[in-house]
Nucleic acid binder design. Sequence first.
DNA 1: CTGGATCCCAGATGATACTG
DNA 2: CAGTATCATCTGGGATCCAG
Lengths: 134, 134
Amino acid sequence: MMVKLPAGKPGKGELLNADCPSREVLKRLTGRWSLLVLIALKQETLRFSALRRRIGGVSERMLAQTLRHMEEDGFIQRTAYEVVPPHVEYHLTPLGREAESRIAVLADWLENNLGRIMQHRSAAAGETAVGNSE
Amino acid sequence: MMVKLPAGKPGKGELLNADCPSREVLKRLTGRWSLLVLIALKQETLRFSALRRRIGGVSERMLAQTLRHMEEDGFIQRTAYEVVPPHVEYHLTPLGREAESRIAVLADWLENNLGRIMQHRSAAAGETAVGNSE
DNA sequence: CTGGATCCCAGATGATACTG
DNA sequence: CAGTATCATCTGGGATCCAG
């Protein structure tokens, strides 16, 4: 079964197409933690534990997994120093920085408009409560 | 229990803080389908079934759920015409359009750089394959 | 310190059937 | 047409223990 890309330039993805590999990448990029890793690494190179402290609520397992995936996709670079105790650092690659800048646009907007959104959500919840109990 | 926002302007969120409600909104915004709904509705008002056809791979259930959530958060508006057969339309609200424009930045970048990312991923997979079979 | 391995659960998602 | 209800499944994610 061929994957048909509606107006395809080479290497160009189509997110609305279920068969497009961009879906896969999107999934990774918008995963619960990936995006936060990008933000956390925006300016500084960080060690595993520092990163973990920086990103509230992430477990060791998930952070490790997320970092592995992001390294695979080329967003971050992992540098391990062969010492004991181990010392591992993570920092953004050029690709990662490009992605981060786009993510930041969204993140900044979200942080600055959080009030508006929460407000709307409360209002919506109130209205629903009037008419039914869902 | 108070939510402590590190350097809080009013209504300003902190994504890196686990207790910040922005996490919740982010989850919705970056959910598997929300983002695609925003893109699909960028220019046109669409009916449920049209939207479903537009977004490859989404099930009725998930689309309906996503649309409800996005309406709650104020990103889209649902308009139901009381006719038979039913006719329901969805379109972006001003808030939705703002979000969409930020999402679009990320989506466009992703679509245009998909090749680069896939390439890196293959390379990474290759390297790992040399050393082990994971 | 940096994770890998395991166990386990809640929630996300899909398939299908059904209704106003 | 536009969903909802139900059931089954799959996966993300946390807790814990372990190892280099």
